[in-house]
Design a protein around this nucleic acid. Structure first.
Lengths: 143, 143
DNA sequence: CTGAAATTGAGATTAAGTTTCAATTGAAAA
DNA sequence: TTTTCAATTGAAACTTAATCTCAATTTCAG
């Protein structure tokens, strides 16, 4: 299904669904959770398929534009992505000790944001909420 | 006041409040709103004071650690900071049409986040909420 | 004043991400 | 099928924010 969506997106822009782009798409949607571009590149490289680092980055940008993938954070060491198609919207807590990511969802949070938007006559399309701090495990470890 | 806070922060860690650090601190707190490191460096350079780019970056990191300054976003072209001392915490709505920024604050939102954090035994230090969409003015304009 | 420790600046370095460009591929038209 | 031409690819060069190096300088406690 994501393949068809990406296909449509590409065709609309006069672009082609090449083997490389397919490989990137396939790997991204077989990853459960977050991933970094370099990591993605290595997986693809080791999977019998092929796609250069440049193609991985290029495809990643296209996928973000198409809405199938989201860049969920930028750290000093690069960006973290996740595929959004087929996943319910959620937000993130990021542990600054171990760089771990915890996903969460709160209906309350969504509602309040809607209220705020209408208060400002703002038409909200999407949002990113990132809570940074220390996760359970790291708190214990530090004691 | 921010000077004293920074001073204390530095002393606690056996560091010194040098002329360079003072210059960075002063300029940051005289800027109304957001700023980028390079921009800050140029302002300081042109203000009779001095601080190398390296010192600007180093001081910026210290200020973030001290809690006086916050990195509010990372873009392809670098980071954006703002000083938080004397400013109530707030979040941002970003209009993707005009790139305008609307600041807002919601106690509700803060409380819910605290609840979520404790639910996950997560020790939240700070957060960034960015709602992207279209602002009032741009909605009107487009009609 | 002295000395240990912190700090500075200039330039080197790092590394994520982008761009370049010659060679290749894809697919629509002939 | 062959032609054709724009799109695509990969390898390496490049860009650029941010960090690091290190010799020289400054700070400040004693």
């Amino acid at each position: 299904m994501e393949r068809r969506i990406f296909q449509n997106f590409l065709v609309e822009r006069g672009l082609k669904l090449t083997k490389e782009r397919e490989a990137v798409l396939r790997e991204i949607f077989s990853i459960h959770g977050h991933f970094e571009p370099e990591h993605l590149y290595l997986i693809i490289k080791g999977s019998g398929n092929k796609a250069s680092r440049a193609s991985v980055y290029r495809t990643l940008n296209l996928l973000v534009e198409s809405g199938l993938v989201e860049r969920i954070s930028r750290t000093d060491k690069g960006s973290v992505y996740e595929h959004t198609y087929g996943h319910r919207h959620h937000d993130h807590m990021i542990c600054t000790e171990c760089n771990g990511v915890i996903e969460f969802y709160s209906e309350n949070l969504e509602e309040i944001q809607n209220t705020i938007c209408s208060k400002y006559d703002f038409s909200g399309k999407n949002h990113t909420l990132e809570i940074r701090g220390t996760c359970r495990t790291c708190i214990k470890r530090k004691k």
